[in-house]
Structure formats: structure tokens, C-alpha cells
């Protein structure tokens, strides 16, 4: 078995016009057993910065705690909010440091640059290899379904409301075929002045 298939879960992020959105499902499993149906995998790292960490949940939680610690330290030392690019470098180096004993997490980062308001989206594998030039990023058990849906449904310059609809449809239809994901989804739409968090219903079995 693959460590990603143990706890299950998916995460997807998308760029819009002056906004980004990131979503994850709510299922937490132990193999075929569903342990929780209220376990979003997206974590807040700043006012307009989120990271989704699907994978082995024990590692996701360790990684998110370590990251929050480093982000806090960074913001105290620098006396400014961390930029998504900087945060990506932080995640990357933390993951690649464990090249020969990795944390079993894939990461999806979404945020707006606090200075330029530029949308930022990236996905990384367990070793921290990721690029920043794609309009959407996916990770998790339904990776292929998410990628196909994003490729077909994504349109450039979506307004925040339209971005929400597209991303919701993407995650709803992707987890519909994924028995290790689902049980509802949370979608954060990040704009420069506000973050709108919505939950939607998806397959519950």
C-alpha cells in the first residue's frame, strides 16, 4: 500500500483573477475504516496563506506544526508577514532535508502575496519538488480525477464567486469516485481584503 492511501484525502487549489481558492475534503480514514468525517486538510499559515497537506495524517500534523513554528519565528524576526514564495521555500527545504526518510505528505500552497496581491498556487511531491507556473495544483488520493477536471473546467480570469463554483464542482466530482476521500469539503476563497470559507456536501459513504 501507498502511505497516501492509508488516511486518504485530497487537496486542490486554483488561481482566479486577483484571487485564489484552496479546497480539501473532510474524510479521515484508517485503511477502509472511516474514523472522522470532519477533518479538513487545509491549514491557515497567515491571513491570506493556506497550505493543504494530504498524505499520512501523522506526518501532515507534524509538518503543519513545524511549519507554523517556523512561520511564527520568521514573522517575529522579520517583523512582516511571510510571502507565499518565501513560505514555499520554507516547505521545500523542510521536505528535501528528509530526502532519505521523507514525511509522507504532498503539499498544496495557495495564497496572495501581501505586497503585490499576486495569486500564488503550487503543489509539491513528498521531496519538495514543485513549480509555481501552473494555474492549478492538486494532490491526494484522487489526484488524477482532480487533474483531469481542472484541465477541462478551469477558465482564465475567474471572479471569486465563479472560482468557488468551479473549484467546488472539481472537488465534488473528483471525490465522488474516490472511496478514500469525500465526506464533505471546505473551500477557502482568498481575496486581498477577505477570506470566504464555505463547506459543501459531497459523497458521505
Amino acid at each position: 500500500m501507498n502511505p497516501f492511501n492509508y488516511n486518504g484525502g485530497v487537496c486542490v487549489a486554483m488561481k482566479g483573477k486577483n484571487c485564489v481558492a484552496i479546497a480539501s475534503d473532510h474524510r479521515l480514514g484508517a485503511g477502509r475504516l472511516t474514523v472522522s468525517t470532519d477533518f479538513p486538510k487545509v491549514f491557515e499559515m497567515g491571513p491570506a496563506l493556506f497550505i493543504g497537506l494530504p498524505g499520512l495524517t501523522t506526518d501532515s500534523l507534524t509538518v503543519v506544526n513545524k511549519l507554523k513554528f517556523r512561520v511564527n519565528l520568521y514573522e517575529l524576526r522579520e517583523n512582516r508577514k511571510i510571502r507565499p514564495h518565501t513560505f514555499k521555500a520554507m516547505v521545500e527545504s523542510m521536505l528535501y532535508e528528509r530526502r532519505f526518510g521523507p514525511y509522507y505528505v504532498a503539499s498544496v500552497i495557495a495564497g496572495l502575496d501581501p505586497e503585490t496581491d499576486e495569486p500564488f498556487v503550487t503543489a509539491m511531491d513528498v521531496l519538495g519538488a514543485g513549480e509555481v507556473n501552473e494555474p492549478f495544483a492538486v494532490a491526494g488520493t484522487a489526484e488524477e480525477s482532480l487533474l483531469g477536471l481542472c484541465e477541462a473546467l478551469w477558465e482564465p480570469d475567474l471572479a471569486p464567486e465563479d472560482l468557488f463554483e468551479t473549484l467546488s464542482q472539481v472537488i465534488l466530482n473528483a471525490v465522488d469516485f474516490d472511496c478514500l476521500g469525500g465526506a464533505g469539503a471546505t473551500i477557502h476563497v482568498i481575496e486581498k481584503d477577505k477570506v470566504t470559507t464555505r463547506t459543501i456536501k459531497t459523497r458521505m459513504d
Partner: peptide
Amino acid sequence: SGENLVHPFLHNQIGAKRTL
């Protein structure tokens, strides 16, 4: 080989799977 990528797209667009 492209089944997993496109199958949910067909459900969404043809099957009109928009809500649970």
C-alpha cells in the same frame, strides 16, 4: 489510460452531477 482523468468530467457535464 485517460479514464481516471476524464470520467468525472463526463459525469459532471453529461450526467449533470452538480450536487450530492
